[in-house]
Simulated assay, not measured.
Amino acid sequence: MSKAALTALVRDLLEQDILCEQEPVYGAGRPSVPLVVRANAAWFIGISLQDDPAVVVLTDLHGTTLARIELPRLPDPEACLASLAGAVGDLRKSLGKNREKISGIGVALPGFVAKDRQTCLACTALGWRNLNIGTVLAERTGLPVWVENDAKALILGEQLFGPLKGSPDFSMVFVSHGIGCAHIVNGRLLWGNAGGAGEISHAPITVDATQALPCRCGNRGCLETVASLLAIGNAARQAGLPTSTRELTLLAAEGHPQALTILHRAGSAMGIATAQLIQMLDPSHVVVMLDSALKDGVYGHALQHEADSHILHRPNTHTMINFRDFEPDSFARGAASLAARYFIFGHGDV
C-alpha cells in the first residue's frame, strides 16, 4: 500500500474509534506514534456446544470475556436454538445502550460443518444432521451468525487472540470426552477436502485386533478409544477404580499398578499420535489442552516421552509441545473469534 492509502485507512479507523493512538515513542528521527485496536470497538457473542452445559460468552475485540451464561445443551434442535437465542437476548438486554456494539455471533460444535459456516452437516453428540444453525439463529437474534467445528474454532481463537497469533504453522489438540485437533498451515486454517483435516480422534492407533476396542464412529482401535477421558473412565471402571481423572492420577502417583497402566497407556497413545502429527505437518508448536491432573501426571509425562521418542529431529529446529489446562470457555471464545474475523477483515477466510 502507498503511504497515502495507508494514512487514509488509519485516519478512517481512528475516526470510527476502532484504532487509538498511544504515547509517542522517541528515538532517532521523528517520534513514532503506536496504534492499537480498541478493545471496546466491538463486542461479539460466542456459543460453545462442545459439552453440556452449553456456554455463551460476550467478548471484546481483544478476546477478553466480559460476561457468560451457562444453559443446558438440549438435543432437540428447535428447543436448543430457542434457548440459545434467549440467552443472547438476555446478554443484549444487560448491555442497555451498548447492545449496538455486538457485531455478530459464532457457534462452536463437535461435528462437521459445511464451508458456508452456517450448516451443521453431522453432530453425533447431539444427533444433528444437515441443520442450518446459522440462518435460524440469525433470524431469531437479528445478528449475523457463523458456525464452526469446535477444534477449528479453538485454533482460530488462538490465531486471532492467543499467544501463538504470530506463528504461521501450529497445531492444537484437546483431550476431553473425545479428542479434537486442528492446524494452521502457512497462516491459514487447514480445512481438507470435506472439513475433516485434523480429525485424529478417529485415526487408528491400535493395530492388534485383539486389543482394538470398538469406537462410536463404527470402527475399532481409534485413538479416542484409548486416550480420551471417556476411554480412561471406562478402563478405570472395568478395573474397579475411581473414574475421576484426579483420583485416578493420585492413585497412579502412589504407585497403584492398574492406575499407572491405564494412564500410561492412554498418554503413550496420545504421544504417538502427536508425533505422527508433527512428522506430517512440521508445526512450530503443538498446543495440547487437557485436564491439569493429566498434564502434570503420568499421562502428560508419557505423552511427552512418546512424542519425543518418535519424532525425527531436524537440524536447527524443534517442535515445541505446550501443555495448557483444559478450559471449556476457550471454545466459546474461539466461536466469538469467528464473528470478530468478519468484523476485522470483512470475511471469515483464514
Rank of each mutant, 00 (worst) to 15 (best):
N219M: 07
R220Q: 08
R220Y: 06
R220K: 07
G221K: 06
C222N: 12
C222A: 15
C222R: 05
C222G: 15
L223D: 07
L223W: 10
L223H: 07
E224M: 11
E224C: 07
T225L: 14
V226T: 09
V226L: 09
A227Q: 05
S228R: 01
S228M: 08
L229H: 06
L229W: 08
L230Y: 07
A231F: 03
I232N: 05
G233I: 02
G233Q: 14
G233W: 03
N234R: 12
N234D: 14
A235D: 15
A235E: 11
R237K: 13
R237A: 15
R237T: 11
G240N: 08
G240D: 13
G240E: 13
G240L: 10
L241T: 14
L241M: 13
L241Q: 07
L241P: 14
P242H: 10
T243C: 06
T243G: 10
S244C: 04
S244F: 01
T245D: 06
T245Y: 00
R246A: 10
R246T: 14
E247I: 00
E247W: 03
L248M: 10
T249G: 04
T249R: 01
T249C: 12
T249Q: 06
T249P: 02
L250T: 10
L250D: 11
L251A: 05
L251K: 01
A252R: 02
A252E: 02
A253Q: 13
E254T: 03
G255S: 09
G255D: 02
H256K: 07
H256N: 12
P257S: 09
P257T: 00
L260T: 01
L260F: 00
T261N: 13
L263M: 14
H264F: 03
H264E: 12
R265N: 06
A266N: 12
A266E: 05
